[in-house]
Design a protein around this nucleic acid. Structure first.
Length: 642
DNA sequence: ATTAAAAGCGCCCTCTGCTGGACCTCA
DNA sequence: ATGAGGTCCAGCAGAGGGCGCTTTTAAT
């Protein structure tokens, strides 16, 4: 038998819908049902058989429907099938797998040519002892169209070779030569088939062929029903692969196929739920003793398979082989057909392939994210749950990923923190990814020119531009034409020139006082004409001394040892320190203690009668109340003296 | 029936790279 | 004071390595 070379009994092609015992009068019953009326029983002379691949040619009588291949006696078994269509994609299967050279010879080119109208394959099988593969011309058939047709016996297989069946086909009467008379021969007698064509399920485009083995009594020892040699067929599905095309036995419970009935039967046991061997430790059950033994080894830690190149040991030989490939031999049998990737395990190649196909089978139930493998989905789910399973052992900060925590520990708690030196400049960056950003931002060539803001130089690299502009930093490019004054900015020079020209273009709208700079006018106006003006004050946290400028206060804090922290701004304290000092000077109190203004910072308004002045005590604003022109300098000094 | 080999599934890990907010420096 | 730009940092996802364990298949 050429069963292993032949092929294709897959769901794409055929479905055996039923297999049943037929009464002795089966033929008559069938005839009465009208499925196969007017059959012509063909004798051996009407049948060509060639090796294991016979060509049965059945011709219908004109005006009759159905096909009949028959002999003198009727077999009790009837197998009904659905036809499906064989596309050009499957041509290769025919060429490489279906037919031996003899088979091609035998069919005389009928199934050899891919382009001449492909054949659909019918797969017939009683499920236990025999199977027959035949083909018909590819097309969608009506019953009428089946009136004249060639059926090609592609295979009759199986246990045919075993002794417990009498249904063994031979190569005709000769050894290797086609029999002139043809016909399938059992070991003891010729075999013939009755083929009936009738419509499939209502609404379907299928045709159900009923094949009857016409050898009575041959199959009596067979089971009443096959082991589900049932394969779901889809007449339009032609995606089956060549490998499967060689496997006539198809499991109805899974995708398993095999060319050998023994393998098929063994496989069917795998669907059995019987697991008589139970682990006494965890009560898990297994089909075989070996499986149980391996399992128990996982409990006991017994690892009989030791690696000769390292200290690793494993429960199973397969684990050892895999380990050696990963660690020692680096053999990677599974190679990607698209790129150079190769892997030790098939599952890894499968996972890798998704990076080419973009397939993402694992969909998040809470968002649109989909993952290419289960672990990434599980990791992603932490973003929904907020789970942070990784904790820094030093600072106990928690992280969602181990890698993030590892970097955290490395950068925050390690002594020898790795740094990344930019190859183009002196910059040292803590993280490689940030170095990449640095390189991208500063050292990448830009097509568009970047101009120096100080001169006409242009650059294509940002880093070069920045470095160049720094050369302008201390450069006093603007020189006064009247004196030796020089400055960095043009606007400064403009102001300076006014000291020579006397120009004061900014005039106060309230008192007509003129200023050289707009900024000076603004200060003047706020100070003397804006009643709502509240200057900002920074207060020393230790001694509460107030300052108008942050840097001045910092300088003070450094002296009074008030600490390094940035003091909280004391708020908008009303204050006219400069005027207060002027008053003190006027009152002859220039030598007053430096902290004389600590408690009382209010001043009188002798210079500007009628103006309300703010007052604060200990740096805390107390408002304007009670402080007006009646508050004399003397009173203030008295307060200060308290 | 038994065993070895192969296949398959699952889990965890590392390395990598990108992103955006926080923070800092500087003009 | 302010905005721009750079670095720090945690979050998150892609890709792949490695192993534990079970199941299936092939060989004996």
């Amino acid at each position: 038998m050429a069963g292993t070379e032949l092929s294709v009994p897959s769901e794409q092609f055929t479905k055996i819908k039923a297999w049943e015992l037929m009464p002795p009068k089966a033929l008559e019953v069938v005839q009465e049902e009208g499925a196969c009326r007017g059959r012509e029983h063909l004798g051996p002379g009407n049948v060509e058989a060639q090796g294991t691949y016979g060509l049965l040619e059945a011709k219908m009588l004109e005006g009759e429907r159905g096909l009949v291949l028959t002999t003198e006696e009727s077999e009790k078994h009837i197998v009904t099938l659905q036809t499906v269509h064989f596309s050009s994609e499957d041509v290769q299967l025919q060429d490489v797998g279906w037919l031996t050279p003899q088979g091609r010879e035998g069919v005389q080119g009928a199934v050899r040519q891919a382009s001449g109208g492909e054949q659909s394959l019918l797969w017939l099988d009683d499920g236990s002892q025999q199977c027959v593969a035949i083909s018909i011309q590819e097309d969608t058939y009506t019953l009428q169209e089946l009136e004249v047709m060639q059926l090609h016996i592609l295979e009759v297989s199986v246990a045919a070779a075993s002794e417990d069946t009498k249904f063994v086909l031979e190569k005709g009467q000769g050894e290797d030569q086609p029999s002139a008379e043809g016909g399938f021969r059992a070991q003891t007698q010729e075999q013939f088939f009755l083929v009936e064509a009738k419509p499939g399920d209502e609404g379907s485009d299928e045709i159900v062929l009923t094949i009857s083995n016409l050898n009575v009594g041959e199959q009596e020892d067979r089971p009443a029903s096959g082991q589900g040699r049932v394969e779901k067929a889809n007449s339009t599905n032609n995606q089956k692969k060549a490998k499967e095309a060689k496997q006539p036995f198809c499991c109805d419970s899974c995708v398993f196929t095999s060319s050998r009935i023994s393998s098929f039967n063994r496989h069917m046991k795998t669907h059995s739920t019987e697991k008589p061997h139970m682990c006494h430790l965890c009560l898990k059950a297994f089909r075989t003793v070996t499986l149980l033994r391996n399992h128990i080894n996982t409990h006991t830690g017994t690892r009989p398979y030791k690696c000769g190149d390292c200290v690793m040991a494993f429960v199973t030989s397969g684990e050892l082989v895999r380990h050696r490939r990963y660690k020692h031999t680096h053999e990677k049998p599974f190679k990607c057909s698209i790129c150079k990737y190769a892997s030790v395990e098939a599952s890894k190649l499968k996972r890798h392939t998704r990076s080419h196909t973009g397939e993402r089978p694992f969909q998040c139930s809470l968002c649109s994210y989909a993952s290419k493998d289960t672990y990434k989905l599980k990791r992603h789910m932490r973003t929904h749950s907020g789970e942070k399973p990784y904790e820094c052992h030093v600072c106990h900060t928690r992280f969602t990923q181990s890698g993030t925590m590892k970097i955290h520990v490395l950068q925050k708690h390690s002594k020898n923190v790795p740094k990344y030196q930019c190859p183009h400049c002196a910059t040292i960056i803590a993280r490689k990814s940030d170095l990449r950003v640095h390189l991208r931002n500063l050292h990448t060539y830009k097509a568009t020119e970047m101009k120096c803001r100080y001169c006409t130089a242009v650059f294509h690299e940002r880093y070069a531009l920045v470095q160049h502009q720094k050369t302008h930093k201390n450069e006093k490019r603007f020189k006064c034409e009247y004196c030796s004054y020089a400055c960095k900015q043009e606007r400064h020079m403009t102001v300076h020139i006014r000291t020579h020209t006397g120009e004061k273009p900014f005039t106060c709208v309230s008192c007509n006082k003129c200023f050289r700079q707009k900024q000076l006018l603004n200060v003047h106006f706020r100070k003397y004409h804006d009643a709502d003006f509240i200057p900002t004050v920074y207060q020393c946290p230790k001694c509460s001394k107030s300052f108008s400028r942050w840097n001045n206060m910092q300088r003070h804090c450094a002296k009074c040892d008030a600490g390094q922290g940035k003091p909280a701004a004391s708020g908008k304290v009303r204050r006219v320190k400069r005027r207060k000092l002027a008053i003190l000077k006027e009152a002859g109190k220039e030598d007053a203690p430096k902290d004389a203004t600590k408690e009382v910072s209010a001043v009188s308004v002798k210079q500007y009668p009628g103006e309300m002045v703010p007052v604060c005590y200990g740096g805390v604003a107390v408002g304007n109340k009670g402080l007006d022109e009646d508050l004399s300098c003397e009173m203030i000094l008295q307060m200060m003296d308290k």
